[in-house]
Design a protein around this nucleic acid. Structure first.
Lengths: 244, 244
DNA sequence: TGCAGAAATTGGTTGGACCATTGGACCACT
DNA sequence: AGTGGTCCAATGGTCCAACCAATTTCTGCA
């Protein structure tokens, strides 16, 4: 006989309770991002806990980017908070490493393909028109600025994520996107980075407009493949300059 | 002329300095995950800072999942840490409703399939043996406890994510997993939830052992499909009891 | 009226104390 | 040998009171 039905109990959870109370407060006061929340001292007094405990709780929130503390000024809300939030700490080891960039791309490949397929399934005519508009803007920027269209490119993709109907796609891929670009400060020397992916934006759009999920998925995979290819070429140039 | 290369001097960045020192310590001592790191009191004394400051720093690491604190026992390393790590806490807003659960499954479908395929590509013989071991444990638990094998089931999947070589898979899917289970407290009334997915664990394993990425992806998709099906059945029972 | 300096406010840090839990040592009893 | 009980030191969790440092607000003089 095993006792698997005896889960460990949780008696103490002071700072978690503080966070829960804070969530309630923000909700009750309808605090918006940018607004200031009560002083640590006031919170400590009102909640009948030590200021230290309040600080530990706020440190947690600060680490999550939910809150910003300014010494001498106060603590300010940085994002909307609600009771049903999930914290997902992504940790990528290896720093400015080629491997790390590839790992973000592997995630993007999986999600980008799925999002494109779902988008093709669910897009309304208005959605399709919106995506086409973003595509036009991107293509125009690409031509007039000779490939420097990262911003418009990103907005095109975001439109697809939104139409997919699942906000998680945009949130997670955005995190990958930022992770990717943070490593990109020292450009790998690939001047025409992104050029190869250009034509696939239109083919993805055409599949979406034609309500062709399988096609959209395939084209999205091709797009990511070109990015991976650019990355490999850049890494080869940077790390193995002696090899011809 | 701009002065972007003059970052603001942080006269006071005590807790960050503590974390930096800790990274150095972990590196110097070659601490592995699971090992215990020095007492808060010892750290405070050695680093010449207050114990409270040490605690704030450790609270940050705890929030990132790098460290686990056990009262009365000590503080233990939970993941490898190095100086060039990138942390990106991502907070997702989730709802309790059926739609939110479905959205987590869409993410899981994309990532699970990709991870299974990558796993089949990259698994070493030792990796395959490890996955098979986890599979055996799960199957045994499933049979002896009549389907109550959620824990072992999850460990089997985690093994696959690890072998995929990309830690992001495990981190993101784990977040989806938690989001999913957090709203599963009120069981939807589906008693045999998870039964349908059982056989696909072995088929996934067989594809991995045979180094068949396409097959592994296909089987993973089938598995998620059964979970989606269970979810839909549960929702139908719960929310639309009048409909037959 | 304008503005420099004082005063109040607020987060950051310190040191010390006590509580709650853990885990090991020791012991009595079976 | 093993079971359970008691004690005790170590350790994280909480609390308090004070002070430091950055910021904001107020004040009074020019």
């Amino acid at each position: 006989m095993d006792h698997n039905s005896l889960p460990p109990i949780h008696t103490t959870a002071r700072d978690d309770a503080v966070l829960k109370a804070l969530v309630g407060f923000v909700g009750a006061e309808a605090l918006q991002p940018g607004e200031k929340l009560p002083t640590e001292r006031i919170l400590a007094e009102r909640l009948k806990v030590s200021r230290n405990t309040v600080r530990e709780a706020l440190t947690r929130w600060e680490g999550l980017g939910l809150v910003e503390r300014r010494q001498g000024s106060g603590t300010y809300l940085r994002a909307a908070v609600s009771a049903d939030m999930l914290h997902m700490p992504l940790t990528l080891a290896g720093g400015h490493d080629f491997t790390s960039l590839m790992q973000t791309l592997e995630i993007r490949r999986a999600l980008e393909a799925e999002a494109a397929a779902l988008c093709a399934e669910r897009a309304s005519p208005a959605d399709i028109a919106e995506i086409e508009r973003k595509l036009d803007i991107m293509e125009r920027a690409f031509r007039t600025r000779d490939g420097m269209s990262a911003e418009e490119d990103w907005e095109f993709h975001q439109a697809i994520y939104r139409v997919s109907g699942n906000p998680l796609f945009e949130q997670i891929i955005a995190a990958m996107h930022e992770l990717f670009h943070r490593f990109w400060e020292h450009p790998l020397g690939v001047r025409d980075f992104g050029h190869a992916s250009f034509p696939y934006h239109r083919t993805i759009y055409e599949c979406i407009a034609a309500r062709d999920p399988r096609g959209a998925r395939a084209e999205a995979l091709k797009l990511i493949a070109t990015v991976e290819d650019d990355l490999k070429r850049g890494a080869a140039k940077l790390k193995l300059p002696s090899q011809t």
